[in-house]
Design a protein around this nucleic acid. Sequence first.
DNA 1: GTGGTCTAGACCACC
DNA 2: GTGGTCTAGACCACG
Lengths: 130, 130, 130, 130
Amino acid sequence: MLIALDNASGAPLYQQIVEQVRAMILNGSLRPGAPLPSIRQLAADLVISVITTKRAYQELEAQGLIITLPGRGTFVAELDLDAQLASVASIFGTQLDAIARQAHLAGLDLEDVVALLRSVWPSSSPHEAK
Amino acid sequence: MLIALDNASGAPLYQQIVEQVRAMILNGSLRPGAPLPSIRQLAADLVISVITTKRAYQELEAQGLIITLPGRGTFVAELDLDAQLASVASIFGTQLDAIARQAHLAGLDLEDVVALLRSVWPSSSPHEAK
Amino acid sequence: MLIALDNASGAPLYQQIVEQVRAMILNGSLRPGAPLPSIRQLAADLVISVITTKRAYQELEAQGLIITLPGRGTFVAELDLDAQLASVASIFGTQLDAIARQAHLAGLDLEDVVALLRSVWPSSSPHEAK
Amino acid sequence: MLIALDNASGAPLYQQIVEQVRAMILNGSLRPGAPLPSIRQLAADLVISVITTKRAYQELEAQGLIITLPGRGTFVAELDLDAQLASVASIFGTQLDAIARQAHLAGLDLEDVVALLRSVWPSSSPHEAK
DNA sequence: GTGGTCTAGACCACC
DNA sequence: GTGGTCTAGACCACG
């Protein structure tokens, strides 16, 4: 399981982990029931504090995406993919809403923003490098 | 000059002020040379600390949007609106880029995101009441 | 007597007056004994507060460049031009010293700074437009 | 990291810090990626308020010279030294321009000012002890 | 009246 | 431990 942390991005480390693991679950890289690395293992791999990996897993568990079985490890939860996707869509919706209001206030047009969005959209398939 | 603060939004107060003033400048509600309320006046109006309004104006000045003349007040800077809009567009571009990569990883389609964006786009004119 | 105030320069208004009057005295535009406009007249001409012109004249008087005769007006003082020039040189020396130390710390060379100075030096004679 | 504050200089403390840190970055004493002391540590060392050190770092960050990672510390930014030096040169250029015009108006010659500049230029290397 | 600077002290998020 | 934000209160320079 490859996770890339960007120290300079400004985003909290635990959040970067959450987002990347969530993405892997939602796009099928990680299937329900699959085991995740232990918090200690992941901390060692990423060269960060155990506290940070623990926090990330806590967050993922709170979102119902993974399940921790004490003494046995952590696993991808059995879940309704469509429902999850809907919930993720609502998360993006919130972020887009903030951007939309800002851009709108600044006098930008919806089409301006859509054009911007198209210009930054990644061209490759999300699974190419899997 | 109407500014609405949302204490529950989680966003820093000074940032909310920055965003709203910037929007007013960029969409033409505030024209170059126009005086802004004094930091003390604005603080009184919004019922917040003078330091917070000062912080907001400081940030706006660092961005080159306003100019403060000690002892005389604060004014909208003479600026190249097009250049400013371009720089603002690049800011939104950065934000959209983060969302785009996340959404892409999560398996969402560009058209899904565009649809989301359209669904949250505000319908009214940015300054009908100007 | 032409004085140009630059509201956007950031420099205090009274200081701009002081500097320009001092320059006119030192370069001979204003000769010893010549009358200066009254503080009220000057304030009216420049469309600023009397307090500000008063403060400027006070400063000039403290520097020994002008003399105020109560009830009669304000005049350029009889002075030793060479001594004045020397004192002015020391003022510039202080300012240059600050710049020199900063530039030196930043790793700039003396010749770099001299080159910069030459590049900004006004080309015309100071009296051309008199 | 040695910083010397002069309470009697009239210059704001935060600005003195900014100038000295900027000088250290530009002359290579502080290399990109190097950690700066925490705002609290520096405040303790200099016996000033945390807010003042914070203000200084804020200014340096706005100038793009350093980057602060919340919860992790503050570091010298990766930057294009030449571009930075050019921008600094333009700052000195502005200051020199003000002096040049003043000196010119006062009847001083370019060579007079250059001579003054040479007379105040520090003789030692900027970082002999590095 | 205006902004500029410095101070002390609090709470929060993150590592 | 780190920085981020907000608060109150003081003194100064400038108009």
